[in-house]
Structure formats: C-alpha cells, structure tokens
Simulated assay, not measured.
Amino acid sequence: MIERRKTRQIQLGSVGIGSQHQVSVQSMTNTDTRNIDETVAQIHRLEAAGCDIVRVAVPDRDGAVAIRQIKDRIKIPLIADIHFDYRLAIGSMESGADGIRINPGNLGGEEKLARVVEAAISNRVPIRVGVNSGSIEKDLLKQYGYPSPENSRALIESALRNVQLVEKYGHHEIKISIKSADVLTTINSYRALSQATDYPLHLGVTEAGGLIAGTVKSSVALGILLSEGIGDTFRISLTRDPVEEVRVGFELLRSLKIRERGPELISCPTCGRTRIDLFALAEEVEKFVQTMESPLKVAVMGCVVNGPGEAKQADIGVAGGNGVGIIFKKGEIWKKVHEDELMAVFMTELKKMEQESK
C-alpha cells in the first residue's frame, strides 16, 4: 500500500488537489485556443477518456478572451498556460480560468507579478509555479551548475525562490512543478523538493518524446515517484494526440493500484498461431474501453487454443480464429461468431455489461 506524502489542499475548480484527494490525471490541448469549437471538441474527447484537469495555451489576448466561451462548454477545470505577458494571466483569470500556470521569474519583474497575484487572490485562482531546466535564473546556474541527477540544487532553489515571490504578495494556493527532460534528474529533483515543501506537486517529464519513448520515460520517472507517495497531479507528455496521454496516465495509476478507472485490458503478444489482425483488434477494443467506467477485466487473445484458458480471470474476452472467433466469459466459451461480425457482437456485449454494472 502506497502512503502518500502529506501535502496541503488547494481547490482547482471542482477538483481538490493534495494528499487528501486522489492523484489527478492532467493533459494539455494542442489546438489553437482561439479556435473555440476545435478546442472544446478536443476537451470533450479528453473528458470522455477520464481527464481530470486540462491546460490550454494562451498566446495572446484573444486566447485569454476565448477561455470564457470554452469554460461554458466543458466540465473539467481549465488551467491557462502563461509565458512572459502578465496581462494574459490576468485576462485569463477574468475570463474564468480555474487556475494559471506561470514561471514568476519571466513575467517582467515583481511589480507585474504582484498584479497577477492580486488578480489570483480576488478571483480565488490557484497558481501553479512551473520551473524547468531551461528557465533557471542565471545566478542559480552560476552558483549550482546545470541540473543533473547528482545535483539538482539549481532547479530546487529556482522553484522555492519563485514560490516565495508568490507568497510575498499574500497568495498560498500554490502547486509546484519542476521539470527536466532527463529521467534521473526528474526523479531526484522531485524527491528533494518533496522534502523542502508541503505544497502539492505536479509531476512530469518535459519533452519526453513520442508514444514509445515518451511513455517509457514518463512511466519510469513518474512510476517511481508515485510509488514513493510523491505527486498530486501529473501529465504524461507525449508528442501525440493528448487523449493518448490520458490513456497512459490511467494505466500507470492502475499498475500501481493507486487508482482504477474503467476496464483493465489484457492482450497476448501474438505468436505463429495467430490468424487474425490482433493488433487492429486490440487497438479498437482499447479505444472503446477507454470511454467506459466499469472496472471490468477485458481480454483480447490471438487464438482460440490458449485464449480462454490464459485469460480465464477476464470478465469477457475475445479470441481470433481462422475465419471464426469466440467470445468467452470467465474462461468459458459464450459464443462463436464469424470473423466479420466478431467485433460488432463483442462491442454490443461489452456495452450491455457496462450498463448492467451501473
């Protein structure tokens, strides 16, 4: 049983963040925020996949203004991602953003930061102080050197310095993130930061890469940290459709038995007995179950020889054959179906089981 590190509680819209609450899965849209319909459509897909919190880029004033219309059409909390222009942070909060992500050191000085903090207090908006290896102040780099697995002091000190600036102006609804593209630097930095503060922490490996590299790097770093009780929210950063980030995120939480949402998918790695396009079958089932909430165990197996036996713990499973497949439940064959109809029959039964479990 993983024991969560004790952290303060903050409220981000409808989602509570901190050790009293479940670990939240976050993602970020890759649409132009000013394109309201496209952005809303992507957020709806993220919501269907279980995303708890979404972040949007705010490139200019029109992007800040668009937040109001986006907020009116979505259910999950929205964070405005701000860089350099303090006015966009203020405008985003006035448009209804539930939270903002800033690096206080790049907003143009303390006077401008003070105005952002004042707006955050008046709008009751938490601030995520985000620092990464590429944004560390020059004096800290000179003093401590560039962050590495052996020495992450510059990253830690930069985060704490920027947190203190926000605190200086009276705001304590804070979440912190410190990111590196290096897995070991990320792990050791968050370990050190968790000892230095009790603010909630947002985890992530920045610029992690595409589906394979990004999933591996993020899962290693975040899996280790979460298994140690460190982390209150996280994002799996992938150069992919952001829905994929959410899918990987929930599988990571499931593997650590931290949180389960929807069915668990079991699928075999294939072998020479496979006579069906198992890759396509497994991918289609995986996408379908991502929108389900019932904790069913679903199996996709390559052949009827071993399928039901190897996956006998599955609530329902499908196994391919040569022109004919089978659908089985708890290791027992339930129905034989022609290959052309196999997926349709299987999906129909899955939907039925989902409804019955509610």
Rank of each mutant, 00 (worst) to 15 (best):
Q9K: 15
M28H: 07
T29Y: 06
A48P: 01
A57F: 12
I67D: 04
I67T: 10
R73D: 15
K75T: 15
P77H: 11
D85K: 13
L88G: 09
S92D: 03
A97V: 01
G108E: 12
E110H: 03
L113P: 09
A114E: 15
V116S: 02
S122T: 14
L141T: 10
S158I: 03
L160F: 06
N162I: 05
N162A: 05
Q164K: 05
E167Y: 06
H172E: 14
E173L: 09
E173I: 04
I174R: 10
K175W: 00
S177P: 10
T186N: 11
N188E: 06
A192L: 09
A196K: 03
S219R: 05
A221G: 11
L222M: 14
S227T: 02
D232M: 02
R235F: 05
P242R: 06
V246Q: 03
F250V: 10
S255K: 03
I258N: 01
P263D: 06
S267M: 07
C268Y: 01
P269I: 12
E293H: 09
K297L: 15
V305L: 10
N306F: 05
Q313N: 14
Q313F: 12
D315S: 02
I316Y: 00
I316E: 00
G317F: 03
G321F: 00
G321I: 00
N322T: 12
F328E: 00
K330I: 02
K330P: 01
E332M: 07
W334I: 00
F346R: 00
M347I: 13
T348P: 00
L350M: 10
M353N: 08
M353L: 15
E354W: 06
